[in-house]
């Protein structure tokens, strides 16, 4: 596999939001034919690409992969082989965190802007063309104009997805929540008064949704900083998302 093919594969993993570990030989002792600085290898749970020039080295990467992914940071490892030692740069390939904004109203617009500022991929969904458009969301990566349930069926929700439900009415909130409640999303937050949130939750419970599933919903949404304006609310929502992303809680 030449370098171009390897980098295409790496790009596909990044774009497909697929986790993996990229290994790069940065130093190799003489006496290891085929093992040269610049050799690259990509480990993913589904398959392996590229070559380090030694099956033992690739096995060493596979052995360390879960630890490197969990550590979230790149590291240098020196591997001792019978023929000599090799230094590998091991780098986690992590899915890019994405914020899905459901509802393109005043709060949704600010959430999309602040999420982009914080470096997240941003997708906006609304069923009204007057709200799901680029003029209102100039920095969003993706704008989908469709009804919420259909749109949510079409997009991929992963453990790197953060869902913000800020639609214009409780009927839409309910549709959105029902569509994502069993997804692997890292975060589900829903705006609304305690009463409105409670109403939606009770309806889902009556339909047989497990109580544990409802407990993961962040509602009222956002950190309690006394936010009042749409922009302030957006900051409090992103603060909560950043905490979940960086600290896992």
């Amino acid at each position: 596999m030449d370098k171009l093919a390897f980098f295409r594969q790496l790009l596909a993993a990044l774009e497909g939001q697929q986790p993996g570990v990229a290994a790069l030989v940065v130093k190799a002792e003489a006496g290891l034919p085929g093992v040269a600085p610049g050799n690259r290898f990509l480990w993913t749970p589904e398959g392996h690409y590229g070559s380090l020039g030694s099956a033992n080295l690739e096995a060493a990467v596979a052995e360390r992969a879960r630890e490197v992914l969990a550590g979230r940071r790149p590291r240098l490892d020196t591997i001792e082989l019978d023929e000599g030692s090799v230094t590998l740069f091991l780098e986690p390939v992590l899915p890019e965190p994405e914020v899905i904004v459901l509802g393109g109203g005043h709060v949704g617009q600010q959430v999309a802007a602040v999420a982009k500022l914080a470096g997240y991929l941003v997708t906006v969904i609304d069923d009204r063309p007057d709200f799901a458009n680029q003029a209102l969301f100039p920095t969003a990566d993706r704008i989908i104009c469709n009804n919420f349930t259909a749109a949510l069926q079409d997009i991929k929700i992963t453990a790197a997805t953060f869902i913000v439900i800020v639609t214009r009415g409780h009927r839409h909130d309910y549709d959105c929540l029902r569509a994502v409640i069993d997804s692997p999303a890292a975060y589900i937050g829903m705006i609304g008064s305690r009463r409105r949130v409670q109403g939606v939750k009770e309806r889902l419970l009556a339909e047989g949704v497990r109580e544990a599933a409802l407990e993961r919903i962040h509602a009222p949404i956002g950190l309690d900083i006394g936010a009042e304006t749409p922009a302030e609310i957006a900051v409090s929502i992103l603060a909560e998302i950043i905490r979940v992303y960086r600290r896992g809680a």
Binding site: K3, L4, F7, R8, L10, L11, L14, E15, A22, L24, V26, P74, L76, F89, E91, P92, V93, L94, E96
Partner: peptide
């Protein structure tokens, strides 16, 4: 691993433009 940078590397290689990749290790 930065997606835009990997994208850039693929684009340059496709165009046959020589380039060097520097990585802080």
């Amino acid at each position: 691993m930065d997606r835009e940078l990997v994208q850039g590397a693929v684009r340059l290689m496709e165009q046959g433009e020589p380039c060097a990749l520097a990585t802080i290790i």
